[in-house]
Every structure is written in structure tokens, then in C-alpha cells.
Design a protein around this nucleic acid. Sequence first.
DNA 1: AAAGATATTGGACCTTAGTCCATCAGACTT
DNA 2: AAGTCTGATGGACTAAGGTCCAATATCTTT
Lengths: 210, 210
Amino acid sequence: MTVENAMVFVVDDDLSVRKSLDRLIRSAGFAVETFAAANAFLERHSHKGPSCLILDVKMPGVSGLELQEKLLSQEYAMPIIFITGHGDIPMTVKAIKKGAVNFLSKPFDDTDLLDAVHEALQRDTKARTIREKLEKIHRCLESLTPREYEILTYVITGMLNKQIAYTLKISEKTVKVHRGRVMQKMSVGSVAELVRLTEQAHIKPAEVLL
Amino acid sequence: MTVENAMVFVVDDDLSVRKSLDRLIRSAGFAVETFAAANAFLERHSHKGPSCLILDVKMPGVSGLELQEKLLSQEYAMPIIFITGHGDIPMTVKAIKKGAVNFLSKPFDDTDLLDAVHEALQRDTKARTIREKLEKIHRCLESLTPREYEILTYVITGMLNKQIAYTLKISEKTVKVHRGRVMQKMSVGSVAELVRLTEQAHIKPAEVLL
DNA sequence: AAAGATATTGGACCTTAGTCCATCAGACTT
DNA sequence: AAGTCTGATGGACTAAGGTCCAATATCTTT
């Protein structure tokens, strides 16, 4: 099954590599956009659908591994497939430990590359679904007033209204009101759902790519 | 800071490697136990404290990568550091993607190996802590009767007692009784805590090693 | 057959949670 | 100065959760 609306980005300083990858990946049914340098990619690579990045390790300017770091620290992370002419094992370990999908030496097998692309797009699809949910949750959380958020933190530990009231030195009545608004704003109907939501809220965007 | 009570297992068919690793790791302050083959290791390698495994990729009989598979499928998993004379990149990718801590080519730097050992033991320590919690949770869950467990599954979705009662075609009264027993047996005082516990229950032992 | 675990239910009662309506005060904006 | 947002409260009720005591029905195990 092909991933719909997918885009594969290629960053490699070698024109011939870009050309051949472009041809190969298009023939597999994916849209491709190529860049000759990491910076060019960083400047404009937004895509609404699932996407992944095929990245040369060694490049003038920002190297592939450096680009990986940058992507990880930003939230523009997407699965990366490394390709390289002169790769070594320590480099491979580093790249994979940071989440790269594969690390292929040139010349690589077309099948290996396409397999990796499939896996990468699969991962990104999953990650995007999760990210959407996370964003929705964070939007909800941000709609809470400071006091409401404070009350929420107590509610999800299982504290009773009266305990929360005592802790905050306010009346139990007030706690109920805040609590009610929290449930409304978070669109949940029970403490159980609230706990579930807020548990997920702690997931970091970078972890989502598996 | 040294990890207390740690044990490092070494599986390598080359006696000289076993000897030198034994010396190196002991000098770093860890207990070591060496094995000449994967099977010998599988038969007896239990250790109560944090431990990790230094594993030769290429060995007669069960290979290192095969042993990794076996460990992952069982719950005796421990962090693995691969060492090899003739490693290649695809092999490295495979090993690291399956969670290996490092993949070192012989001859390797003593520092690299010891760093890896530290990381591995660190991981195992963390994993053991989590596993203990998980085991406790599962013991609690197993103490529930089938009916109680069934009710629990509904409770943690946030369903009201009356809804659960209707679904199971029993009286709300009965639901309350079961629910009460569930809370007791799981040693929690609120639905919030119950949800937290049961969420963790889904974590698989293999995922714990990060 | 007796014992024990499991499942079910009722009654009585108390505690919590949640909601509708209404009020009041301080901070900030227009 | 008027309007808005946020926070804090009270009264009055309704609904839901939780507990103690007690009873009954199965089913399995000894």
C-alpha cells in the first residue's frame, strides 16, 4: 500500500545523486524535492503530508549529522535516511541511535532505499497522527487560566475537592467551579479521561518518531 | 559514580578477548563473568543486580545477533554492547535499531568500551526499576477476579456505575461492590491513580530498555 | 457433602461531585 | 469611566460514589 500525498526530500551536494534519487523515488510513486545543501532545505521544506528526508552525511557547510541534530531540536523532525560514500561504524551508531531509519553506503541497492523510504513515511504518518493529538491537547491546556491549570494538576492526582480547597486555602465551592470549567475546556466527561489526556501531554515531539 | 553491585557478562569465542575484557572491566570496578558461547550464557546468567552483555557478533553456533533476538523475545533482556572483528554497516544498523548500546570494532578503545558499559548499566538500572513497578502492577491485576477485572476496564474509561451496570445487565449495587474491591486490591484511593496504574500495565518488558 | 471463592443484590446512610443562579472584587483594556 | 476577564463564594439541589451489614446462588475444590 502506498502512502498518500507523501513527499520525499533529498539533500545531497552531488547533482548526479540528486538526479538519480529523484528518478528512483518518483518511479516508486512519491513526490520528491531535492536540495544541494542543508541550509537550503532548512529554509523551505514545509509539507502538509507525510514526508521524510534522504540525507548525505558528508557535505560542505552543514553536515548531515549536524542537520539531524538541528531537526531533532526543532519540532520539524522527520524520519531521516542517511546515505554516504565513506561511512564508518561509529558514525552509523550515532545516526541510528538518534533515530535515523537507515544508513546506506553508496552505491546502495534501490530496494534497500525504497524499503527505507517506506518505513520512514510510515513512521512519519504515525508521528503526525500523534502530533495532531498532542497539539489539540496543548491547545486545550493553554485555554485554561492559571488557576484552572493549578486545580487540574491536583485533580489528576486524585485529590478530593475538599483537599484541594484546603491546600489552596479557598472554599470547596470555588474548587468545584474551576474543576467544572476544566472539564469543559478539556472536553472530557470524567476524571479518567482527563488523566489520560494529561498523561499524553508530557510526550515530547521528538519522541514521537519512535 | 559507579553502579553498585553490577555484573558484566562477556560472550566471545576467543579466549584472549575474554581474558583481556575481564581484566579491563574488573579494573573499572565491575564483576565479570565470561562465556565462550551463546548457549552457555543462556543457560546460566541470572544476576540480581544491574547487568549488561558484551557480545561478539560472529561466533560458531548461535551468533551474537541471534542471541540478541532471543534475549529480546524473552524477558531476560539486558543492554548489549557488540564487539566484532569484521563488522559492516548494515549489521550495525540492525543491531542498534534493536536497542544495542554500541557496536565496536576490534581493536577498540578501552575508553569506548567502558563508556558503553557505563551507559548499558545505567540503562539496565533504569529498566529494572521500571520492571519492578510493572511486576507489582501485574501482580495486583492478577489478584482480581475475572469480573472485577472486567469492571476495572470499564471504570478506567470513565463510565458511570449505572452505565457499567446497564452494559453488564447487573445492578448498580453490584458494580459498586466490585469497584470497591478493585480499588482495594490495586491499593489506590482514586480513579485517577487507577488510570495511571493501568496505563503503565500496557508497557512491554522489551520497551523498558529504551 | 462441606468448604471456599465468586457473583449478585438490597437497605440504610454518608460523602463527593456537579450544576444553575447570583454576587462581588481586583486587574487590565479600551 | 465602562467593559471584560479572572477568581472567589453562597444557596439549593440532584446525581453519583462509597461503605457497612446481610443474604443468596453458583461453581469448584477438597
